[in-house]
Amino acid sequence: MFEAAADKHRAQTDAKARVFELTAIGLNQANLDVTPSEQPVRFDSEEECQRTHGGDWNKRLSQPPAAKRH
């Protein structure tokens, strides 16, 4: 719980930046060169792919992302 909305927003922004930093490190370690872009980024997991598409990444990635849940 945050005392002010600004504190909550700052925490979310910091967490998002850290996720992107860790993702960039992982991609770099996998020798994947990704150019920064303003395009939306979708994070996914093996677990979700297994659960919803039986591990078929081609099928999963060819479908639009599910509606965002709140």
Score class of each variant (00 low, 15 high):
Val41Phe: 00
Thr52Lys: 14
Ser62Asp: 05
Arg10Asn: 10
Val41Met: 00
Ala5Tyr: 08
Lys8Gly: 04
Pro65Tyr: 11
Asp56Trp: 04
Gln39Met: 05
Gly55Glu: 01
Ala66Ile: 00
Lys16Met: 10
Gly54Pro: 01
Lys8His: 12
Ala11His: 12
Ala24Arg: 11
Met1Asn: 14
Glu47Met: 05
Thr13Phe: 01
Ala11Asp: 05
Gln29Val: 02
Met1Gln: 14
Ala11Cys: 11
Gln63Leu: 15
Asp56Ile: 02
Glu21Ala: 15
Phe2Trp: 13
Ala4His: 13
Arg69Phe: 10
Arg42Asn: 02
Ala66Asp: 03
Val41Ser: 00
Thr13Gly: 00
Asp44Leu: 06
Ala15Leu: 14
Pro40Thr: 01
Gln63Gly: 04
Asn31Ala: 13
Asp56Met: 03
Ala66Pro: 00
Pro64Thr: 07
Phe20Asn: 15
Val34Asp: 03
Asn31Pro: 02
Asn58Tyr: 07
Glu47Gly: 01
Phe20Gln: 15
Leu27Lys: 09
Ala6Cys: 05
Ala5Gly: 04
Ala5Lys: 03
Lys16Gln: 07
Gly55Ser: 04
Ser62Tyr: 04
Ala4Ser: 12
Lys16Ala: 07
Lys68Arg: 14
Leu32Gln: 13
Pro36Ile: 03
Asp7Tyr: 00
Thr35Arg: 15
Ala4Asn: 10
Glu21Tyr: 15
Cys49Thr: 02
Ala30Asn: 13
His53Val: 02
Glu3Trp: 14
Arg18Gln: 15
Asp14Asn: 09
Arg51Gly: 04
Lys8Asp: 06
Ala67Glu: 15
Asp33Phe: 13
Ala30Glu: 11
Asp7Ile: 01
Leu22Thr: 08
Asp14Ser: 06
Ala6Asn: 05
Ala11Thr: 06
Gly54Val: 08
Lys8Phe: 13
Leu32Arg: 15
Ile25Thr: 15
Ala66Tyr: 01
Pro65Thr: 11
Ala24Asp: 11
Asn28Met: 14
Ala4Pro: 00
Pro40Asn: 01
Glu46Arg: 11
Gln29His: 04
Asn28Gly: 14
Gly54Ile: 11
Val34Leu: 12
Ala4Asp: 05
Gln63Asp: 09
His53Phe: 10
Glu38Asn: 04
Glu38Asp: 09
Asn28Trp: 12
Met1His: 15
Ser45Met: 09
Asn31Glu: 09
Asp44Gln: 04
Ala11Met: 06
Leu27Gln: 11
Phe20Tyr: 14
Thr35Asp: 08
Pro36Asn: 05
Asp33Val: 12
Arg42Cys: 01
His53Asn: 03
Leu27Thr: 06
Lys59Asp: 10
Ser45Glu: 08
Ser62Trp: 04
Cys49Ser: 08
Leu22Val: 09
Asp14Phe: 06
Ala67Met: 09
His9Thr: 06
Lys68Tyr: 13
Phe43Gly: 06
Val34Cys: 06
Val41Asp: 00
Arg42His: 08
Trp57Pro: 03
Lys68Met: 13
Gln50Ile: 08
Ala24Val: 07
Ala30Val: 05
Gly55Asn: 01
Gln12Ser: 03
Glu21Asp: 14
Phe43Thr: 04
Trp57Glu: 07
Ala67Thr: 13
Asp56Gln: 03
Lys8Met: 07
Lys68Leu: 15
Gln39Trp: 01
Asp7Ser: 09
Gln29Tyr: 02
Gly55Thr: 02
Arg10Tyr: 07
Leu61Asn: 04
